[in-house]
């Protein structure tokens, strides 16, 4: 787990006067699914292009699978798969022909190529339509064909840019399943997306980009801890009066208690306090009616972060 697949140190990219990526430090480990978040223009795509060696960094260093993409682009690109947003195909050619062109560009030929094409088509579930021209494909099928093109080179790292944009919910579900299966095969995945609940559903760790910097990095729980203050939100319904308020506030790790109406409480805490809350209610002589907890949502982290950012900017 500790072997870094991607390592950026003080990575900087300047387009004229615009600082697209500003001293970025990023490490992605083997077998991880890492989510890149952030508003448009935050530097996600530029970072991806630098990882692939399609753009040269202004300063700083990048290592992808231990290689420098600017100096050894061919080795990097033969080990790293890239799925651009709205991936395009040669519409007049069939799925199989599109795949074989990509295979040949990777120097894979003959029987090996046929085998790999068959496996890749199986993996994404397109074997039945392999000989149909791509122009007849739906968005979801095209997206899966894009993954097949990436799988053909048996990559160690796959970088996906907005992979679930414009897919219908069923296609999204299938796509996320596919990503999880790839992770089981030991492939490291980086994906950028605006669809936060999807990112949360598959990613082990996420990094939040803002103005060319990675402002937050960690698991969703860690991010929630830092941005929302409390990572756990507990909803409690109990009869207990003001004594209960006090008792709840005195629990360790509680950040905030708000009462909503006569007997509904919202508790923000740094750890999972459900058992302690239940005990506190009982000890305070109250009647416990309902107790539930929210998993922190990435949407909330994201929105809250940028709200705070806006207040700081306004203050400054």
């Amino acid at each position: 787990m500790d072997e870094p697949v991607v390592e950026c140190r003080d990575l900087t990219k300047q387009y004229g006067s615009l600082l697209a990526v500003d001293h970025l430090n990023l490490t992605v480990h083997k077998g991880e699914i890492f989510g890149l978040l952030g508003p448009n223009g935050a530097g996600k795509t530029t970072t991806i292009l630098m990882l692939l060696g399609l753009t040269e960094p202004t300063s700083g260093s990048v290592r992808v699978i231990g290689l420098d993409p600017a100096r050894q682009p061919l080795s990097v690109k033969s080990r790293v798969g890239h799925l651009p947003d709205q991936v395009g195909f040669y519409d007049g050619l069939t799925a199989r022909e599109n795949l074989s062109y990509i295979a040949k560009l990777n120097g894979i030929r003959g029987k090996e190529m046929q085998d790999r094409i068959r496996t890749a088509l199986d993996q994404v579930g397109l074997s039945d339509v392999a000989d149909r021209p791509v122009r007849t494909f739906s968005r979801g099928m095209r997206q899966r064909l894009g993954v097949a093109e990436v799988l053909i080179k048996r990559p160690q790292l796959i970088i996906m840019d907005e992979p679930t944009l414009a897919l219908d919910p069923e296609a999204v579900r299938e796509f996320l399943d596919l990503i999880r299966r790839l992770k089981e095969d030991g492939i490291t995945i980086m994906l950028s997306s605006h669809l936060l609940h999807q990112v949360q559903a598959v990613c082990d760790r996420v990094g939040l980009f803002h103005k060319g910097r990675m402002v937050l990095e960690g698991t969703v729980g860690e991010l929630a801890q830092r941005v929302l203050g409390g990572a756990y939100r507990i909803h409690l319904e109990a009869d207990g009066g003001t004594a209960l308020d006090e008792a709840l506030r005195c629990l360790p790790d509680v950040v905030q208690v708000t009462r909503d109406g006569a007997r509904t409480y919202h508790i923000e805490a740094r750890s999972d306090l459900r058992a302690d809350v239940a005990r506190a209610v009982v000890e305070a002589g109250g009647r416990l009616l309902a107790l539930s907890s929210d998993i922190p949502r990435l949407d909330e982290v994201y929105t809250r972060y940028f709200q705070k950012e806006a207040t700081y900017a306004a203050a400054a």
Binding site: L52, L54, P73, L74, S75, K77, S78, V80, G81, H82, P84, Q86, V87, G88, F89, Y90, D91, I102, L105, N106, G107, G146, E149, K153
Partner: peptide
Amino acid sequence: QRTISKVLAQP
């Protein structure tokens, strides 16, 4: 056709 970035992402 948006194929350029894909082709150039090959080795």
